[in-house]
């Protein structure tokens, strides 16, 4: 069991020991000539450095409790998430115009609603970690919904054209494919919800239990986070497909 009182020396020793496992894996992959040793090594170093920088930044923000810094961090997350998602929809001109509002809408609408309902306190300790989880989920859904929508549009080009010829408006003609995009992007979340706690203990809950929190409380928080994630995902997918349908054309 991990102590709830943080001892920096003990923490570094344990991290060092866990890192040995990665060193062994890198050596093994080199011995077996898997061709991933270098990439794995760089990934491990990047993970450690990135996380340490973020932790120092977050610690400073926690200390200051300045909501402007919290907003800046969340805004930065939106930008990076939007740029990542935009790479998935290169066939759309200026994809950031779709991904940024979609991810931001998903994240901020849900955060604001939860704050207004009093479910989540207006504190950096909650806003940053929960905001990052929600942003990450909105990003994945945005990418999945756009990818599926674009593929459906390519496959059903003739159907869209025929519907238009038969008197459909553009939104009526593409609506089945918008729906497919939204539905497909939510499948992972719905499956995760169905198997919640049975197949795997979700990350936040597992972390809280390891950290010594009452499991019931951990479960409550996990459910709240999951509902927020699904809400953000739905909004993100909805906005993404809506904006995408206005950005694509048949010819």
């Amino acid at each position: 069991m991990i102590e709830t009182v943080y001892d920096p020396v003990d923490g570094l020793v344990k991290l060092g020991l866990a890192s040995l496992l990665m060193v062994v894996l890198i050596l093994l992959s080199r011995v077996r000539n898997l061709g991933i040793a270098r990439e794995l090594g760089v990934a491990v170093v990047r993970a450690v450095v990135q996380l340490m920088i973020v932790v120092l930044l977050i610690a400073a923000v926690f200390q200051s409790q300045n909501l402007l810094f919290v907003l800046l961090i969340l805004a930065g997350m939106q930008g990076i998430a939007a740029a990542t998602s935009a790479k998935r929809v290169s066939e759309v001109k200026d994809p950031l115009r779709i991904t940024l509002p979609s991810i931001a809408a998903g994240t901020f609408v849900i955060l604001v609603v939860m704050i207004l309902l009093g479910v989540m306190p207006l504190q950096a300790e909650f806003l940053i970690p929960v905001g990052s989880m929600v942003t990450g989920a909105a990003m994945v859904t945005c990418s999945l919904s756009l990818d599926r929508f674009m593929r459906e549009m390519a496959t059903n080009r003739l159907r869209v054209e025929t519907a238009l010829s038969l008197g459909a408006t553009w939104s009526e003609a593409v609506e089945p494919y918008t729906r497919q995009g939204i539905r497909a992007s939510l499948i992972p979340s719905i499956d995760r919800l169905k198997t919640l706690g049975i197949v795997v203990l979700p990350g936040a809950m597992a972390g809280m239990i390891i950290g010594g929190v009452n499991p019931v409380w951990a479960a409550e928080y996990q459910l709240i986070i999951f509902f927020m994630i699904v809400g953000a995902e739905l909004i993100s997918a909805f906005v993404a497909t809506l904006l995408a349908q206005q950005s694509v054309s048949l010819y």
Partner: peptide
């Protein structure tokens, strides 16, 4: 069009498909 383009469902549903549009 050149390529016969139908939608899922029966012949009747295909005949009635355009009537689902507002116009």
């Amino acid at each position: 069009g050149q390529v016969p383009t139908l939608y899922e469902g029966t012949v009747r549903q295909n005949l009635e498909y355009p009537f689902s549009f507002k116009s």
